[in-house]
Design a protein around this nucleic acid. Sequence first.
DNA 1: CATCTATGTTGACACATGTCGATATAGGTG
DNA 2: CACCTATATCGACATGTGTCAACATAGATG
Lengths: 125, 125
Amino acid sequence: MSNTKVLPLLEPEGTEAVAPCCPPLTERPFTAEEAETAARMFKALGDPVRLRLFSAVASHEGGEACVCDISDVGVSQPTVSHHLKKLKEAGLLTSERRGTWVYYRVEPSVLAAMGRLLAVAPTAA
Amino acid sequence: MSNTKVLPLLEPEGTEAVAPCCPPLTERPFTAEEAETAARMFKALGDPVRLRLFSAVASHEGGEACVCDISDVGVSQPTVSHHLKKLKEAGLLTSERRGTWVYYRVEPSVLAAMGRLLAVAPTAA
DNA sequence: CATCTATGTTGACACATGTCGATATAGGTG
DNA sequence: CACCTATATCGACATGTGTCAACATAGATG
């Protein structure tokens, strides 16, 4: 089952502009503020362990995963918890406690926002 | 003591192998190697100054810019040079000397590769 | 050759970051 | 309540990173 569509990433009709952070990187030079905001997201994914955790959550069935499902990334449990916190602080993940376990899921708007950043501008001029 | 100038013919690792990096983040959990590779790119854009420099190059007319065109980002000239070097090492930029000036341009495959990572559909709207 | 501008490199430093062990907290179960 | 599991926090440490001043290098030009 590798075809389960996990997340509605981009609405084709552009229904909601949730995170109007920045224009595409190629549109015009970023201002200092835009760069601060966008760099925070890139930075959060700029660590291999965090990227594995994020990918594990994003690819998990149902779009969410409990820590126990994804903590096999070669570092200690406190380190896993630390990285999940970082991803949460960066706005990339949300968490919810259900009983003994804590479930993390991807914040969908952020992925779309980063996609827009990297999207090639529709050939202005 | 004049140093023997190292030829740029031998690629100093990291300046290639960017395109066939990884599947979309949401497809399956990243392996350690995939995460290493992809995190390197994200990390390079995870600094506000580097992101401004990258955006300045990417949005400059002709797809390239000399350092003098983009070095107004609020840090000293050595720092600008340092960040451009980092972006180059990450495979995001290439450089070419033309006379007195050095021109940087975006490695085209990289934006597409990172876009694939984020599972961005090719917005046909 | 002397000198100017443009860019890169070096060395040093303060600070951020990733990591772990120890410990704390939350919730389940007997 | 006592005990167990799952997750978070704390404290400490080594390493990485961004920054600058000083200097080096490359090319143009007089």
